[in-house]
Every structure is written in C-alpha cells, then in structure tokens.
Simulated scan of single mutants.
Amino acid sequence: MSISLPNSAISVAVLLAAYNGRQWLAEQLESLFQQRAVSVTIFVSVDESSDGTAQWLSQLALTEPRLKLLVDNGRMGSAARNFFRLLRDVDITQYDYVAFADQDDIWLPTKLSRAVECLQKGYDGYSSDVTAFWPDGRKKLIKKSQPQQRWDFLFESPGPGCTFVMNASFVSQLQRCVQQNWTALQGFDYHDWFVYAFARANGFTWIIDEQPGILYRQHARNVVGANTGLGAFWSRARYVLRGGGFSQAILLTRLLGLNNEPFVRLWSARTRYGYLKLALHARQCRRHKREQLYFFLLCILSVLFPS
C-alpha cells in the first residue's frame, strides 16, 4: 500500500444504513474505526427496528465522536430508501470522500486507503470485488471487476454498494439529483445501481477494483447477497419475467434523462421486437460473459413470454 498519510490528512464520511442489525454492528463498526491512513466519520440512519439497534447506537454515540446518528425518520421499508435518505440528508462538504457501508460486513483495515489510492489516479467512483463468507466458515471470491461495457450501467451495479467510495465533488452532484428526484426514487429498489448509473450517464469515471476490501457476510436476512449460481439466475429470471427488472431499468432511464436515447427507445416500450433487439445487444449490457449469456436468454424468454 503506497498511502501512508496521517489519519487527519484524508477525511471520509461513511454512510451506514441500519435495520435490526444489533447483532452485527459492533464488529462492523470496529472494522470501520480501525481503517488506516484516513479519518473516518460514520453517519448512521436506522430504519425503524425492533431489536434495540437505535438505542444501542445512541448510547455508543455519547462516547464515540466519530459516530453520528441521524434523527429518527420512521419506517423507510428498504435499504435503498435508507441509503437515499443518507445521501439526501448528510452534509458532506467537510469531507474528501464518501463511502457506503452495510451493517453486517467486516472491512479490511486498508479498504478505504486502497480505494482512495485508486480514486487519486483520476476516478470519481470506486467499487470492488468482495470475499463472501458464511456462518459455517465457507468463503468465496465474488468477482465484479470485469471490463465495463457501453450500457452495463442500465442493467447492473458495479458490485455491492458496501464497496463504494466516491470523491466529494461527484457526491455533491449526486446529492442534488437525489434531492430533485426524491419522490420518483422511492420506487427504485437499488441505491448502488442508481449511483453507478448516475456516474456513467453523466460522464464521471468509475473503477472496479479486483482486490477485495471487505468480508461480505451472508445470512438469511441479506437483501441481495452474493447472488451466485444457477439458483440465483432463476430467481432473477422470475423477477425479470414478472416485469420487475425491466420496469426498474425503464424508471432508471427516466430518472437519468435517457428515455429518448436511441438505444433506450429500442426496448423501453417492452414489445417482443424490443426485447429481441435488446437480446442482440447483450454483450453491451452486462460485464461478465456468463451474465451476457443469461441476459440474452432472459430477453429471448421475454420475447416468448412477455410480462
């Protein structure tokens, strides 16, 4: 690691969305506070919980100045809405970088310094591969660092949002977009996908690092999780064929002002012909070659069985 600056030299605002996470938060927060070569402030938004999450965090914040608990916002109902709330409400003007954090992972000590090192090469946003781990001790590298494609941002995230680190100038523009589109964003289910798409659609640069920076905890209450294997494919297939996946992609294009883009107009009407044309662009719509094949098959299934 080439960065060896004092802790006060680089400031990072970490936005953490919590919901019934009391059993994991102590270990996660400890890994955040142990980040090397950066000064960390953690802003936490707690979705209405029943396990004492908010009360425990309130007590910790009394003695830990690096922890800032946002005021109660009631029931938000999803991780995406919670993260959008953090983006809307946290003042990031005093920070150099902004990162997202889930409540249940474990960050390696150089996760943020590695991200900053990459961003300082001229990028606005950063994400990475992760090492998924299970309660029984299993671990698996989840690769997301395949080469970016022309339209991948309209159909997928560049990795889990908990790996995201972004420079403050990019986030300030992202915040304005979130504030201006607040009502419409309540219908969009993936904050990480939206952030990446906003970056790519507006000419910001993004790097997907092949070096994992976090241990990505897998358990029964994961919102998305590692998402690997044939079972995950069929789960996504059912979601897409019921209309969810393409509906989200169409909403995304509208939020980004891309609905009149010729490529988008090819398929956004969701006709059989449109799905067929989209199938022919599968290589441009996903990064991983296997996912390109899956995407092609899902488009063909949508031709045969339109939602």
Rank of each mutant, 00 (worst) to 15 (best):
G203S: 13
I92G: 08
V98M: 03
D152T: 12
A61F: 02
F83M: 11
Q34W: 11
K140S: 06
K121M: 04
T271C: 07
E291F: 15
F133R: 06
F133M: 03
A99P: 13
Q211T: 10
Y294M: 13
C299Y: 12
G225R: 07
I250F: 05
R272W: 10
S235G: 11
K111D: 03
S169C: 06
E117V: 04
R114T: 12
P6Q: 03
V264I: 15
V71H: 05
Y216E: 10
A99Q: 03
L69P: 09
T163W: 11
S307N: 11
S127V: 02
V116E: 02
V165T: 11
A9R: 04
F295N: 12
G225M: 12
P212S: 14
L108I: 03
W56Q: 06
T271I: 06
G125N: 01
W267T: 04
R150V: 15
K121F: 00
V46S: 04
E64H: 05
F246R: 04
G187E: 00
Q292W: 13
F263S: 11
G52M: 06
A17K: 04
K144D: 10
L60A: 03
D104H: 08
L87A: 08
P147A: 14
T183I: 13
E261R: 13
Q284H: 02
A201F: 13
L252T: 00
G274I: 04
P160H: 07
G74Y: 02
S247Q: 09
T110K: 07
D105M: 03
V240C: 02
V44L: 02
G122Y: 05
V38M: 07
A80D: 01
Q59V: 09
F83A: 10
R238G: 08
